[in-house]
Design a protein around this nucleic acid. Structure first.
Lengths: 72, 72
DNA sequence: CTTCGAAGTGCATTATACGGCTCTTTTTTA
DNA sequence: TAAAAAAGAGCCGTATAATGCACTTCGAAG
């Protein structure tokens, strides 16, 4: 599972912006408990939760084709 | 919410590969009911569910900084 | 040592995602 | 046109994500 990368992205981005978990929780509307749990590597967040956090951090969730060779 | 885009990505990719919901469900280990629900726009899948589906379709979930050129 | 801010954890509750089964609707094929 | 395949939806039990509250841990500062 590469959840860890996603989680780390969030956490690193948050720290980069010097935002505390508490502030991010408030800004995103995600519960502090949820964020803590999430950042400490426990949990399987819903897309909604992830999006809320990403949004505040100026990021976005996306899906990419891994290989390529398919033009769209 | 831009869930719709993610959902559409999955659905389009699945159709592109000419895989039925049933087959994708089996291959990914996600319940057929869940996939149906998900593709029909209802639901808030967990990262795990999304990942399972994306994986089988040769895609991956990612987080990108929205703006650009800030950092890699 | 004490205090404070930030982060992490345990417990309990509520909300909801997951999934199987069945039925209906839509789309495709003959 | 009918039949089959695929997709969508209702019911409903189970698993777990989301959340609040209180406590602990850790580091920095006093």
């Amino acid at each position: 599972m590469h959840f860890e990368e996603l989680i780390k992205s969030i956490k690193e981005r948050r720290e980069e912006l010097q935002v505390t978990q508490e502030t991010l929780a408030e800004l995103s509307g995600v519960g502090l408990r949820t964020l803590k749990q999430f950042e400490s590597g426990k949990g399987n967040p819903t897309l909604l939760t992830l999006s809320k956090l990403a949004d505040v951090l100026g990021m976005e969730v996306g899906l990419q084709v891994k290989n390529l060779s398919r033009n769209e």
